[in-house]
């Protein structure tokens, strides 16, 4: 079973038996969008909530507002049906809860932005493992829409 790794700010699609994996999700949010009937899907490792005034976004996977439309077009281009797309998300943790100055709590903002843009594009959110204080690894199986989420020292959990 071929595993494709999605690095920070990247976005990749896969179908059939292929598996998409992203590791080291701290404040970042992993977003999987898929058509499980057709067995196609895409995964983005979102770093920030909004692209703001960055006019020339080289990696749409970097921002929530650009990643979601880009995922939708990439997954439909691979044969996914726009009307049945679903999403699962993981990440958005705050790894340094003791540091009171919460510039480090970008995780929450990222999760809120991802949810907002999913809703805006009419994508149903089917599962999530978000916030908290632990980093996560996300393994996504486009063939059936299954997502496993794992933190260090813990068992993988299906969302």
């Amino acid at each position: 079973m071929a595993e494709k790794f999605v690095n920070m700010s990247e976005l990749k699609v896969a179908k059939g038996e292929e598996v998409l994996v992203t590791v080291g999700l701290g404040s970042c949010v992993g977003v999987a969008i898929y058509d499980k009937g057709r067995g196609v899907g895409g995964l983005a490792h979102v770093f920030l909530s909004e692209s703001k005034n960055e006019t020339d976004v080289k990696q749409p996977g970097k921002f929530a507002d650009t990643a979601i439309p880009a995922l939708i077009s990439a997954v439909t281009a691979l044969g996914g049906r726009r009307s049945v797309l679903e999403a699962k998300i993981a990440g958005g943790a705050n790894l340094f809860p003791k540091l009171a100055n919460s510039t480090l709590n970008v995780g929450k903002q990222n999760v809120a932005a991802v949810k907002k843009h999913l809703a805006k594009h009419g994508i149903v959110l089917k599962g999530m493992a978000v916030e908290g204080n632990k980093g996560r690894k996300m393994t996504f199986y486009p063939k059936n829409g299954m997502v496993l989420v794992q933190s260090i020292g813990e068992k993988p959990e299906e969302i």
Binding site: G26, C28, F47, L48, L104, N105, G135, I152
Partner: peptide, 27 residues
């Protein structure tokens, strides 16, 4: 220096959290 913050986690999760918290978001 500020007070220290500690995290025991995946290196990528820690590093990305520091960068984004630091608003180091250029490419």
């Amino acid at each position: 220096p500020s007070v220290p913050g500690l995290a025991i986690d995946m290196a990528g999760a820690i590093w990305a959290s520091i960068l984004v918290g630091a608003e180091l978001t250029d490419d």
